[in-house]
Design a protein around this nucleic acid. Sequence first.
RNA 1: GCCGAAGUGGCGGAAUUGGCAGACGCAGCGGACUCAAAAUCCGCCGCCGUCAAAAGCGUGUGGGUUCGAGUCCCACCUUCGGCACCA
Length: 818
Amino acid sequence: MQERYDFTAIEKKWQENWENEGIYKVSEDSPKPKYYCLEMFPYPSGNLHMGHVRNYSIGDVIARFKTMHGFNVLHPMGWDSFGLPAENAAIKHGVAPAKWTKENIANMKMQLKALGLSYDWDREVTTCLPDYYKWTQWLFLQFYKNGLAYKKGASVNWCPGCQTVLANEQVVEGKCERCDSVVEKKSLEQWFFKITDYAQRLLDDLDRLEGWPAKVKTMQENWIGRSEGAMLRFKIAENDEHFWVYTTRPDTVFGVTYVVMAPEHPLVEKLIAGTAYESKVREFITKVQKLSEVDRSSSELEKEGLFIGAHAINPANGKEVPILIGNYVIYEYGTGAVMGVPSHDERDFSFARKLGLEIIPVISKDGSMYTAEEMSEAYIDEGKLINSGKFDGMDNEQAKSAIVEELAKSGDGEKKVNFRLRDWLISRQRFWGAPIPIVYCEHCGAVPVPEDQLPVLLPSDIEFKPTGESPLKYMDEFINTTCPICGAPARRESDTMDTFVCSSWYYMRYSDPKNTERPFRKEKADYWLDVDQYIGGVEHAILHLLYSRFFTKVCHDLGLVEVEEPFRNLLTQGMVLKDGSKMSKSKGNTVSPVEIVGKYGADTARLFILFAAPPERDLEWNDQAVEGCYRFLNRVWRIIDIYEAGKAQGGDSFGKAEKDLRRLLHNTIKRVTEDISVRFNFNTAVSAIMELVNGMYQYKENNNNQAVMTEAEEGLLLLLAPFVPHITEELWHEIGHTDSIHKQTWSVVDEKALSVDEVTIVVQINGKVRDRVELAADLAQEEVKAQVLSREKIAAALDGKEPKKVVVIPNKLVNIVL
RNA sequence: GCCGAAGUGGCGGAAUUGGCAGACGCAGCGGACUCAAAAUCCGCCGCCGUCAAAAGCGUGUGGGUUCGAGUCCCACCUUCGGCACCA
């Protein structure tokens, strides 16, 4: 036995041994049931941070735990390696993005290996390598062929910091999710994925995801933003044009007293041209457009509107109402025009009062009439219709469909489901991404690159000029090509794909990572998918997780995989904090995993991060508590040492001490198994193991039964193995085993060992603890009652009074009610 | 405004089905070992009170249900997260 716990030597030794023995390699050819454990793959920024350590430690415990339970576990790792930091580094330091990325990957891979994680590195995927992005491009082409990828001119989000467009999902409170710049609107031709076609399915299938946190599902639900309502057609009084509005309250259509259009609505221009209102309206529009997106969508913004001199005809009653433009109407949502019903909408009410517009109540609680003058606020509750012609007296809920059906007869109305979700903008005006495999030909238009010409390679000898445009645009060798259809000179698309495209299918590629014929073989993907457990930060709740769900559904529809949902169970881990805030370089409160591993070893780092808090909660870093975990591992080291020494002169007498230790051991096995498998409460699992070790120290004071000590040692190491793989492997061999602890089967609880002869019964009087009694287990209730009442302490407390009632909870508690 | 989560010692956190609140760890205090220190081992450690004990109080606040509530119900406060002039 070595004198002290030399973690540096031990960890190095076993990491090399595991790699040489290939103990973490998996294949589909196994009689065992499969289990797919996946952690969100990292961006290779250069160094691991504590968030990574937490993410991968959690995943590693689960993967090892499942392996020990007899599953064929897929536990892969890779690199989400396209993206802006590489390009920014290139611009700043003149290093090629490919080189920078490659070096970072090498460094981070070394750091990951130093943590002793059970990855099958043969399945590593790297999204920026041609063997991967070839298939990202191939998938783009499948989307394109199936009408799910299209190009259109639109007003898009432009980040001046990143010099590229952004998807809606990447704009947070009007700012760029990456660099915090205020996002601008630009009119550009861009590529989109038609995620809106899948909006309903993405929403419906959330119900299937029982293993997802409700929080994440709610966030996706909010983001998809389904609302049920109707489209209503309004004709223009002054000419024969018409327009549609979207409303969720068609039951209030008789109360429409005005309509409001977004300043961008194309009809506005037509209606004001050459009229007396033209200049004032233009002034208004200019004013609105000067506002940033942030200000414009702020609820603080004072609602303003302006009559534009035209009128619309209410399709329900033929009434003419004024048309206004308003600063609060969003052109991108619904139809960009809304009907104003001040009597039954709070915003409309205050808007109408401010501008002196008419208010007509059309719903009351019981169908009785009232006037606008009596109203101090909008009536938004349920009720019966009034002032609504033949619908008077009808329940407003019923009226919603009745009115739409009536209007449908004349083509003026139809039911309509609306979503907040927009199509996914995937073009990026940047270099370091997968090129969009499209060629523009003067004769044939946009032509997809034929599949046998994939990948469209990123050039390597690129010169970076910080111009704000993709350098690809100026590379003649890349841009100039010929049309795949007619052979005429043509130009390549210079935009690349959003990196979220690359990361939307990597979990499928892991099933068949080296395939050169297709993204993956269906049989392999079907064997491994879905992912049984996915682990990552909650910041991906919408972006990555929504896109991946979309990709899986498309791949399913294209016949590439069977599953329709990629991730069966999702664990969203909390952040790692120091001094109360998230570790970040700018705040200077980071702790380097490399340093911690150097100082205490990987096992200590892993143990602390799993012990300090439950996984979903934020974790406060505490240097002293790390020391505590290190001390605990030393304690484990020593108790094994002591037990081994004790066995030399050990005996076989079996008494209370032995029984107690065995009960403790098997209770611990039970608790740890439940804590890991049912609840992922690694913190309580670890504390249970600590209690076992404390019990083992007590036992050795006066006892030395050889068999019991061996059972305790092996039990302890097996329980601890998923958390701290190196020290347990070392000690496992130290106590005489020759094969790896990580190939062992998880301990089974010996139910007989759990049985107890005596139990401590808590005695309460009126719910307050007054005594404790040691009694034989499973005594009859009457017997327990008699024993308890005969106690001196209790008799004294009762003072001769007769109990009103005595509640007996078997083997636990007696409550005497006076 | 709407939706969701949370609130427990000096700190991180336990309490599985309504049944001993504070497991485990950190910090702190005391003891053993040592010439001494470190390391280690043993013990104490919610508040108030007491020589010590007993009693009393105690899981954000106020009510309620129950023999019994951190846990269930009602109302409220605070913090965090998401959505938001979404028609």
